[in-house]
Structures are given as structure tokens and as C-alpha cells.
């Protein structure tokens, strides 16, 4: 089980094994694993982007900051709970994650209601600029409340490191990937099998027709925002617990990356967002392996531009015409 702080570290055996195997192959396996892990974060956030875009064709620029908000809500909840016994930390984390999901989901609904809904018929430029404004408000609002300094997350996931075909894989990584996977499967079930999910898909095809068929469009859009924001909030708490540091600008870069992932997978497509997240994770891992870490973002954005020019619909995307 993960412990809160473990003074003893499982180390020696790992490096010992590394020394005997073929270094090249190990590196590849490690790169793939690191890419998979980061990619699952991207995928969780990309889902929110993709769902919102699919349903109202809005690029929710503030989505990355919802992730940051989730991390700070988790931080506040854990801090107010006080000391948590090490054995309970995974349970406490799950509870706090659920709480954070509900609150960030609510925040998403409020943002949609007050910032985006009044502009539903307005030109895209106006809505996009509003989204930039919401992003700024969230970032600097949190900075005003919690201070501009980075905070250390109260719970730290730590655990054994396994050595699987040459890659170092830690227990927290496995747990987080499992949580991300479960959330994505639940979401897929929701969208494919429930009536709300059907309504979402129908609105993304033709909003007016859906309205005429008796679908409460506003309510469904609110739910979409709730789900997308809740997933980002969950990712925020997970990132806080795994990396241990949160700050008010943490959502900016990852929001861009998640958007890139959504585009690569095919924006508006839920499976595409998951796939795109993983692909971007790999692309970045290999990019920094080949060009050095300081060029990683340049590489990621270059891939985005390449994708947009050569295959704007993404890997799984369908042809989307611009709404005029």
C-alpha cells in the first residue's frame, strides 16, 4: 500500500537489475511507460475539451485551469482534515477526489451559465475571448486566495517500485492509471448507454433538431460541462498527490497539451481524446529523448501544427464543417 511518507526507499535492487540488461531496450520500455503515464493525465483533461467542443463547438480555454482548481480544492480539503494516518491515505485521497470532482463540476456549470451561455449566438471570437478571460480570472483568483507561491500537497502517494521488462514502474503510477481508466470507461458507458448520453450525441449532431425533439438542450449542455470539469478536477487531485507540488499556473501548459491531444485524436470524439492523450504522451517522451528536454514543448506544438495542416480531423475524427 502507498504510504504517506516513507523514510526507507525501495532502491538498491532496482538499479542492480538495470545494470545487467541491455540499456537501449530498457530505455525504450521506460520511455513508453513514461509516455503512457503522462498521456493518461492528458487524456483525462482532453476528454473535457473534446466533449464541450463536440456539443457546442466552443474551445473552452479555461479547461486547464479547472484542473488547477481541482488540485487546490483537494489541497484545501486535505489541509482542513488535518493529519491522516498513512494507512488511510489512499482512501482519503479517493474521498477528496470525489469531493473535488463535485465542486469543479459545479464550477464548470457556473462558468457555462454565466460566461458562455449569454454568448451562445455571438461570434466565435467573442466567446473565445470570454474563455481567455475566465482562464485569467481562475488563475489569478486562486493566486489572490492561496497566494502565488507553490504549495506542497498534504498527501503524497509513495510505494514500491517494480521492474517490469526493464521499466521502473511504481505502485502509485499503476493506481493512478487504473483510476483514470475506470473514469474513462464510466464516461464511455454514460455517453453510449444512458438517455442523457444519447441527448448529448444528438445535440452535437444537430442542436435545433434536438430542441424540436423535446431535449432540454441547456440542461444537457450543463451536464456536459459538469462531467468534463469533474474529470479535470480528478486529474488535478491525482497530479497533486503524485507530483506533490501545486501552483496557480499549473493548468496553463497542461491545458494546451490536452487540447493538442484532443485535436490529435479528433476533437469532439471521446475515444479520440483518450487515444490522442496517449499518443501525445508518447510523442513527447520520444521527442525529449531525441532532442533534449528543453525542446519538448517545441516538439509537441510542432506536431500539433503538423496534424492540423495535414489531417485537421485527427486520427479518429469525422469531417467537421465550420459553422457559419
Amino acid at each position: 500500500m502507498p504510504r504517506r511518507t516513507s523514510p526507507k526507499r525501495p532502491t538498491a535492487s532496482v538499479t542492480a537489475t538495470v545494470c545487467f540488461a541491455d540499456p537501449k531496450r530498457i530505455l525504450m520500455v521506460q520511455v513508453i511507460w513514461d509516455g503512457l503515464f503522462v498521456g493518461s493525465f492528458y487524456a483525462l483533461i482532453a476528454l473535457g475539451y473534446s466533449m464541450v467542443y463536440g456539443i457546442i463547438k466552443l474551445l473552452n480555454f479555461a479547461h486547464g485551469d479547472i484542473y488547477m482548481l481541482g488540485a487546490f480544492i483537494g489541497f484545501a480539503a486535505l489541509t482542513s482534515l488535518g493529519g491522516i494516518p498513512a494507512t488511510l491515505s489512499i482512501g482519503a485521497l479517493l474521498v477528496v477526489m470525489l469531493l473535488s470532482m463535485v465542486l469543479t463540476g459545479g464550477a464548470g456549470v457556473l462558468i457555462e451559465r454565466f460566461a458562455y451561455r449569454p454568448l451562445r449566438g455571438a461570434p466565435r471570437l467573442a466567446v473565445l475571448i470570454t474563455a481567455v478571460g475566465v482562464s485569467f480570472s481562475l488563475e489569478y483568483g486562486i493566486a489572490a486566495i492561496a497566494g502565488p507561491n507553490p504549495r506542497a500537497f498534504p498527501i503524497r502517494l509513495e510505494g514500491n517500485v517494480f521492474n517490469i521488462i526493464g521499466a521502473r514502474i511504481s505502485l502509485p503510477q499503476i493506481i493512478l492509471i487504473l483510476i483514470a481508466g475506470v473514469l474513462m470507461i464510466l464516461l464511455n458507458f454514460y455517453v453510449q448507454k444512458t438517455s442523457t448520453g444519447r441527448a448529448m450525441r444528438s445535440i452535437s449532431l444537430d442542436r435545433n433538431a434536438s430542441l424540436l425533439m423535446g431535449i432540454n438542450v441547456n440542461q444537457v449542455i450543463s451536464r456536459t460541462f459538469f462531467i468534463g470539469s469533474a474529470l479535470a478536477g480528478a486529474a488535478g487531485v491525482m497530479a497533486g498527490a503524485y507530483y506533490g507540488k501545486i501552483d496557480f499556473l499549473m493548468g496553463f501548459i497542461i491545458g494546451l497539451k490536452a487540447f493538442t491531444a484532443a485535436v490529435i485524436g479528433g476533437i469532439g470524439n471521446i475515444k479520440g481524446a483518450m487515444l490522442g492523450g496517449l499518443v501525445l504522451g508518447f510523442v513527447e517522451a520520444f521527442g525529449s529523448e531525441w532532442f533534449g528536454g528543453q525542446w519538448r514543448d517545441v516538439f509537441a506544438f510542432a506536431v500539433l501544427i503538423l496534424f492540423l495542416t495535414l489531417r485537421p480531423t485527427g486520427i479518429l475524427g469525422e469531417r467537421v464543417t465550420e459553422r457559419v
Partner: peptide
């Protein structure tokens, strides 16, 4: 001898490099 980009959370690339150089 390498550089990282400040302001991120995941530094697995540089960790990988360091582990490789040992």
C-alpha cells in the same frame, strides 16, 4: 549536462537521462 523547462510537473525525461548516465 542538460536543461529542463521550468513550471512543469513531470520531469520524467530528465530523470530518465540521469538514470541512464548514472
Amino acid at each position: 549536462s542538460t536543461s529542463v523547462t521550468p513550471g512543469e510537473s513531470d520531469y520524467s525525461a530528465v530523470v530518465r537521462d540521469i538514470m541512464g548516465a548514472n
